[in-house]
Design a protein around this nucleic acid. Structure first.
Lengths: 335, 335
DNA sequence: TACTCCTATGAAAATTTTTCAATCAGCTTC
DNA sequence: GAAGCTGATTGAAAAATTTTCATAGGAGTA
């Protein structure tokens, strides 16, 4: 009986579902109608059979068709100017292929679970997640619903999910090498959030290149990837007797904050203190900052993410592909 | 025959449409199926009758149901940090009411027409437009499709459309008065884009309060609401012999640019030059700027926009309601 | 001219949703 | 405790809609 549907024509019908599930035709229809009166258990069983056979109600089918052109962006931190830039790039690329962009903004420091249900209810064809932690339960749910997920600017190896990111390790190395070349020796770090790949890899790169030169990170503090956090971290680092002569920051806004602190301390940049950031947000090039930084190739990152989404040979259930793109060291006046 | 449908039950059926249009039932179904083989004229006629009677095919009905919970945001300038803030606020408020947010990002200086078709094809329940010019043809199309439109942070009286904005005139006055009170007399202006309400009203407010005190705008330049534009404008204003002692900028990023120029010119702020902006973006409160500005009540603006959208007594075809909310003068170190 | 191929079409078949009447369980009322 | 009411659940049947099928007509072509 399990292969009942194979013997019939191509498209599975409600009648078949009804037969297999041992219920009336009406029940099948009701199972697909939210709010219809139907025993919870029975509905569950019908839906299971339908999935097994591959049946979709007409309403479900049109819903599917609509959402097939929709991509959901889950953005964690829109107040960091890097992400609006990503959003803008993504929106424009999607417009070109006549697709829609749904946006969810997460409150600070929350993971995706708070909106999982809403996102899945909208049944997008794919989800792009930036700067937010994806829980394994969400990852599992997406696999189950055949929705592709791509992490942008973050890599999570725990859940084996697609990811596109800048080569953060190399970026960290580039920053460190520049500082060494310019003669700085007391190189400190303003980190972001400890368990994020952007933080970890960038720091690893810096540490790596310093170690090669026989050095180490002079001091470090965490700035939570925010201006405020960077400001506090900068103050902490510069307030001690043996203050650093260079600070590598895990992103640009924190770097800008550190520059602001340095100014308050009366330090000349880059003579007394060199500062390097990461991202190359628009403000980095503003005259009052002139921040030396690692530019992330946002356009290419977005393109690669869409490539993964559009590649039919990559299945949602596959183990994730990790795409790493090189960043560019942009030298301005701060280092 | 025109009132044929009134005699029948509540829900119009395809049969009725077929009868009125004088075609077969199958033809009606086909009219609603994209790609189905049907004479173009006949399809048009059927669709017209259907609209007249109020019939929607099941597929169309579910599509309608889905998009009923979708609101489209058309954002003009995501690189100005004010708008990500709006987007973030809107996204979070919509998440609370389980609605979806579709985002379109327009390329710089384009009007909405470039994406009109895409937007209408998605049939959102409402559209919120920030910082982009709405053409009258788009406005007409939305009326016709029964889609509510709300302009956010912009007022266009030419097309009589709903709008929510800060009281820009009053904001301009507040800024001007503060400068006068602090003893500045050579007050210059860095404008945004000439034909936008945000520019016009803010300037009018400034001019108004200066005139009351028997003065006038000392000099002016346009900055296009961008950092770069503001930078150039600032240079122009400060390079002349009789330079201003205060500059009011029509938004914050331009004000930040002007501060940067002033620093290059070796001017002390606020002693040699006072600067006031408009918006209160996060950067305005950063230590290196300490920008005095008019804060826009973004949360309330978004709430008011949604209130208009959710109010069933306001019809898409109605003449627009204009909601004006007071801004707040935030005094920091720049003036 | 005859033939082919394609679009267009209504009738009828197939499919799905909705209505309707019946059943049943849990409460309330007497 | 019995009778009665209410509302959820259900399958059969009716209604509505989509799809199939056979046919007709027209444009292009050998």
């Amino acid at each position: 009986m399990k292969n009942f549907h194979r013997s019939r024509s191509l498209k599975p019908t409600a009648k078949q579902v009804a037969h297999v599930a041992g219920v009336s035709l009406a029940a099948v229809s009701r199972a697909f109608t939210p709010g219809a009166s139907l025993d919870v258990e029975k509905r569950k069983r019908i839906l299971a059979v339908a999935e097994e056979i591959g049946y979709l109600s007409p309403a479900r089918r049109t819903a599917e068709a609509i959402s097939a052109t929709t991509i959901t962006l889950v953005a964690g931190d829109l107040l960091n100017p890097f992400y609006p830039f990503v959003l803008d790039t993504l929106a424009k690329q999607l417009q070109e292929s006549e697709r829609q962009l749904l946006v969810y903004a997460l409150a600070a420091n929350t993971d995706v679970d708070s909106v999982t249900e809403q996102i899945l209810a909208a049944r997008p064809s794919a989800i792009i997640v930036t700067s937010a932690h994806l829980t394994s339960s969400m990852a599992r749910a997406c696999r189950q619903h055949q929705i592709k997920v791509v992490l942008l600017n973050r890599i999570q190896r725990d859940i084996r999910i697609n990811a596109v990111a800048c080569d953060n390790f190399q970026g960290g190395r580039d920053a460190g090498r520049l500082l060494l070349e310019r003669g700085y020796r007391k190189i400190a770090l303003v980190g972001g959030v400890a368990n994020t790949s952007t933080h970890v890899e960038r720091v690893r790169g810096l540490r790596d290149v310093l170690a090669e030169a026989g050095g180490a990170i002079h001091a470090q503090a965490f700035g939570n990837f925010t201006y405020k956090g960077g400001y506090t971290a900068g103050k902490t680092l510069l307030s001690v007797p043996d203050a650093p002569d260079a600070i590598f920051c895990c992103n640009d806004i924190m770097a800008l904050a550190v520059i602001d602190v340095a100014r308050e301390f009366g330090l000349r940049i880059p003579e007394d203190l060199a500062v390097i950031g990461f991202d190359d947000i628009p403000m980095a090039s503003w005259n009052s900052y002139g921040l030396t930084t690692i530019r992330q190739p946002v356009e290419r990152m977005v393109m690669e993410a869409l490539k993964i989404i559009d590649d039919p040979t990559i299945k949602p259930s596959d183990d994730g592909i990790i795409t790493m793109l090189p960043g560019t060291l942009v030298t301005r006046s701060s280092a």
